[in-house]
Write a protein that binds this DNA or RNA. Sequence first.
RNA 1: GGGCCGUUAGCUCAGCCGGUAGAGCAGCAGACUUUUAAUCUGUUGGUCGUGCGUUCGAUCCGCACACGGCCCA
Length: 502
Amino acid sequence: MSDENNNISSDENAQIAQRRAKLAALRAQGNPFPNHFRRDSLAAGLHEKYGALDNAALEGESVRVKVAGRMMAKRVMGKASFAQIQDMSGRIQLFVQRDAVSAECYEEGFKKWDIGDILGAEGTLFKTKTGELSVRVDGIGLLTKSLRPLPEKFHGLVDQEIRYRQRYLDLIMNEDTRKVFELRTRIINFMRSFLAEHNFLEVETPMMHVIPGGATARPFKTHHNALGMDMFLRIAPELYLKRLVVGGFERVFEINRSFRNEGLSTRHNPEFTMLEFYQAYADYNDLMDLTEVMLRKLMHDVLGTMSIACQGHQFDFSKPFARRTVQDAILHFNPHLRDADLESLAAARMAAAALHIPLKDSYGLGKVQLEIFEKTVEQHLQNPTFITAFPTEVSPLARCNTADPFVTDRFELFVGGREIANGFSELNDAEDQAERFRRQAKEKDAGDDEAMHYDADYIRALEYGMPPTAGEGIGIDRLVMLLTDSASIRDVLLFPHMRPET
RNA sequence: GGGCCGUUAGCUCAGCCGGUAGAGCAGCAGACUUUUAAUCUGUUGGUCGUGCGUUCGAUCCGCACACGGCCCA
């Protein structure tokens, strides 16, 4: 180990120096980072089990406990002190008396320890005269010396930047933050077990792709040294999951990261978590039904409510989700438009121009319709709503509708004006898929760097035959934002992407 | 990418018309054996985000940059 002078950070201050001096004194007496203490209780468990008893009953049972955690409060009153330690479950108060732990331990140990230090303590449970369940400590030790002072006890840590950059500190200080991430995990666990119960097989597919596919997005590029080749971080797992359906895994899902090389915003992080699942012998209507059942059960089981408040709006999951097509939705929210305005490219372009929606010359009717939809409809889709029949032009992996091949058998689910899920009956016609890849490749050659590559192996897989299948992707981060009332994706990512500190 | 706002002690925040900075908490020293934002007495702590400019003089005014927040594309 380096000595004290070699290893100091640039933001040292007097308080840290004082703690380093205390640590140096501890080192002189022995190992200041012992790892022998074993607790037998967590704070929340004690409150749950003994919180209802009065002091007479508690003292009568003389319950011995060993607890450990970070000291978050310390109130010294001469020869007795109160402290609060925080563990993974919550907080418990310690009552530390000099005569119960020895004068040596009290004066030279406890009184010199700092808020933020990690302690182990044992003793018996009792209730103070104000009724707080506490441990009457008869043995206590320092388990880890903390060198940095914690934020102020009352206001806590408020600075957004520090909360994101030093999430560990945010988690120490803010119970709300801990709750968000615990809920995130419960949401993901729910979906995992829901799908497993419905006979879906969880799989892991490559995150490093030679041909990035499954979405229209710019990829991150990396390089494989031994193979001497560029590779891409995946923008979606879709094409690999469908290869597995070809292979006979007729229900598969994956929950993991994808990467898109785009800007950062309150809704975009370069790496984000998607759930994708695929079900053979099902179509997009089956998946809408499944999604509705899954989200309702998620609300019920995990949140315990069918109505959620997010950013000042209330969303109701108790009623059947509305379902309407892209065209119907456009007409509904633009009463001045009529069917004819969406039926030819020229008319749709005029309608878009009247709405001040910028278009590129390359856009066909489908893309123009989608632009109008995004600019005039999405924001109004507050309660859960499935939008169906997206134009084929903007759905290169989806199966065309049999009656109207201009659109695909595809849906997106919107809540609070935001897309939560995207699913469709899969295109399993290898020749049609090859033709769509060729069109995408042409657009890529023409300069659209978000257009898809031609994936010959994927076509080969389809040529063996993929059963009729429907697939869906759910943006986990955005779903968690919705369910935790979070304004920014950074609030639901433990370590959101940040520019380097200066 | 554009607009607006922010950056002052470890943390949360003040700081008037430009005259080298304050509070609370935390820390340090002391008192205190049922406190809980403990209390009481005393006290340390600052390259005011970075750089340039204007000025006799800049935390304050101007410009640029960095990071963050909000809104827009």
